[in-house]
């Protein structure tokens, strides 16, 4: 697995929309502004919905990586990193 930086990682692989965004939002609520959180997701909707959530909540996208190495269910997965706003 690549380096996701010093931030928190939420592993939502295997969960379908909107659960990856919900798990991410729940974790983000516990963290101070300026923190970085990375959500891992096998659900292709997450790569659209995490940036949309970040925009709606005043956070910013830091990185979006696609991983083609098959996981448990055989498909690709995404690592989406958000920096929390105020």
């Amino acid at each position: 697995m690549s380096d996701h930086g010093p931030g928190t990682v939420v592993d939502a692989r295997g969960l379908r929309c909107p659960l990856p965004v919900i798990r991410l939002a729940a974790r983000a609520k516990e963290l101070p502004a300026g923190s970085e959180v990375t959500v891992l997701s096998t659900d292709p909707a997450a790569r659209h919905d995490v940036p949309a959530w970040a925009r709606l909540r005043g956070h910013s996208m830091v990185a979006q990586e696609v991983h083609d190495t098959p996981e448990a269910d055989g498909g690709p997965w995404w690592a989406l990193t958000v920096r929390l706003g105020d």
Binding site: R16, C17, P18, D43, P44, A45, H48, D49, P51, A52
Partner: peptide
Amino acid sequence: GSACTASTLEPSHVLAAMGVLTHG
């Protein structure tokens, strides 16, 4: 247009191209 309502995992390509929320 949510993916959760379709037979595929992919949400509406229209909502995705617009960069708006695709779930709900």
